[in-house]
Design a protein around this nucleic acid. Sequence first.
DNA 1: ATATCGATTATCT
DNA 2: GATAATCGATATG
Length: 216
Amino acid sequence: MGTRSSEATPKFQSLNRAFFARNPRRVARELLGKVLVRDSGKLHLTGRIVEVEAYLGANDPASHSFAGETARNSVLFGPPGFAYVYFIYGAHYCLNVSCERDGKAGGVLFRALEPLEGIEEMARARQIELLGPRDLVRLTSGPGRMAEAFGVTRERDNGCDLTSSSSGLWIGDDGFRARNIQVTVRIGITKAADNPLRYILGGNKFVSGRKTLARD
DNA sequence: ATATCGATTATCT
DNA sequence: GATAATCGATATG
């Protein structure tokens, strides 16, 4: 009695590699509500995944892996569950996770997080002063923003194993159940622009893009 | 609230 | 040489 379990219950359970060894659509939908974790020395940042997009690989002209393997996109062709980080518009990094089995390309782009832990540290990384609630949203609402908040760069994180809690960057499950999942077209692309492959937690204020919902 | 535009560089043709 | 899975600023209703 009074004897507690000798090991503390981990706050987040890492995901199995099999979780990612599937179609990016399925992975994207099931990543909603999971938690992105940054562990780096004293730094501990976490944020709930509220917006993602699936990129299908060989069948998807919008995918970076559509035209075949190159030095940049090689992680997408490797085993599932690893970080693919690319640099875009001369300014921003974007974080993805590889999907499908080894040899078959496919991935999920992380587009927005709801900040949970380390909010002050995220604000510092983003060089934002937290005055009003709008500033909080600007921390991690958008692929470039959340990458900056978490200090994600290609040099540092490309190829990182996102299934391992001993990685500096990984994904955990805290039991949160996604509600009100909505599917829309992807943002910012010109090819295959009408495929509904963007998944969001409907109503969550950290989802990027236009706030007003389409109505009839 | 929506639309448009410029910045800036890795990557590929 | 062209392009890009973005962001922040500006202009306008």
